[in-house]
Simulated assay, not measured.
Amino acid sequence: MLRALAHPLRVEILAVLDDLLEATATEIAERVGESPSNCSFHLRQLEKAGYIERAEPRGTAKPWRPVHASRNLRPDPEDAASVRTSAALGSLYVQREASRVVDFLATPPVGDPEWVRTVMINSSEVWATADELRELGERIVALTAHLEGRSSDPSRRPPGSRRAFLFATVNPDPRSEPTPQG
C-alpha cells in the first residue's frame, strides 16, 4: 500500500481529493497541472491500493473520493523495502506540509487576534524510549479523534469553526545512542 503512494503526483492527487472530498480526473488535472489521462492512470493505482474509490456519478462525470480521512505511513519494521518506501513517502509528505506552512507564514491572518493566537509552531527535544515515542505519536493522533467527520459532514462543524491543519512528526535522532541500561 505504501508503494502506491511513493509517487509525488499521487500524493498531490490525494491532497486534492482531501481538499475537495470528491473530484473527477479532469478537475484534479486542472489543480495539479497534469493531463486528465495521466491523472486517471494514477487514480486507478490509488484505487487498487485502497486509498480512493468511485463517488456517485454526476451526470456523465465520474468523480473519485478518498476512502480515509488520514493515512498511517508507518513501515513494517521487519521489511527493509517497507522502511525505505515509508521514508521516501514520508519525505514527500514533509516537503508538502513544510511548503504549506511556509506559504501560510507568508500571509498570516494579521488583524484577527482570535485566529492569530491559534497559530503554533513548536520544536521540542525529548529523551524517550521507543515505547514512549510510539505512545506519544498515538496520543497526538488521538487528540484529533473528536474532530473527525467534520470535513465530510458540514452539519458537524460548530458555528465559527474554520478548516485547520495539524502536522506533527515524532522521530528518534539517528545520531543519538540509546542511554545504557542501568
Rank of each mutant, 00 (worst) to 15 (best):
L21T: 11
T26H: 04
S70I: 11
P75K: 04
R31P: 05
V67L: 14
E138Q: 14
R134L: 13
R100S: 15
H42T: 01
T107I: 11
P178H: 05
V102H: 12
R175H: 12
P172C: 01
L43H: 05
P178L: 05
S151C: 13
L147W: 08
S86W: 02
L2M: 03
K62N: 12
N171Q: 15
A23W: 07
D18G: 12
E56Q: 12
P63A: 00
W64I: 01
V110M: 12
A49R: 06
T144F: 01
T179G: 13
D103A: 13
R163P: 09
Q181R: 13
P159M: 06
S40E: 02
I28D: 03
P77A: 07
M1I: 07
F41H: 11
A130D: 13
L89T: 04
L14A: 11
I52N: 03
A29G: 06
L46N: 03
V16D: 02
W64Y: 14
L136M: 13
Q95P: 06
V141N: 08
H68R: 12
F41E: 10
A87N: 13
L43I: 08
P159Y: 01
G90D: 04
D112C: 07
L9F: 05
L5N: 09
L73W: 02
V32D: 09
V67R: 15
S155D: 10
N122D: 14
L43A: 02
L9D: 14
V102A: 14
T169Y: 00
S82C: 03
G111V: 06
R58G: 03
A106K: 15
P75T: 08
A6C: 14
V116G: 09
A69H: 12
L166H: 11
Y93K: 10
L14W: 12
A81Y: 03
R10E: 07
A15E: 13
R84F: 09
R3G: 12
S37L: 11
S82Y: 00
A25R: 07
G50Q: 04
E27N: 01
R65F: 07
P172I: 10
V170A: 09
T85M: 03
S86P: 06
S123V: 11
P8C: 00
T85A: 12
F41G: 00
L143F: 12
P75A: 11
L133D: 02
L133C: 07
G182D: 13
L2K: 04
R163L: 13
A23S: 07
D79E: 08
S161P: 06
D79K: 00
R117D: 15
Y93N: 10
A81T: 14
A81F: 00
R65A: 11
P36Q: 07
V110I: 15
T169V: 11
R71Y: 15
G149E: 04
P158Y: 05
A29H: 01
Y51D: 00
A69Y: 10
A55N: 01
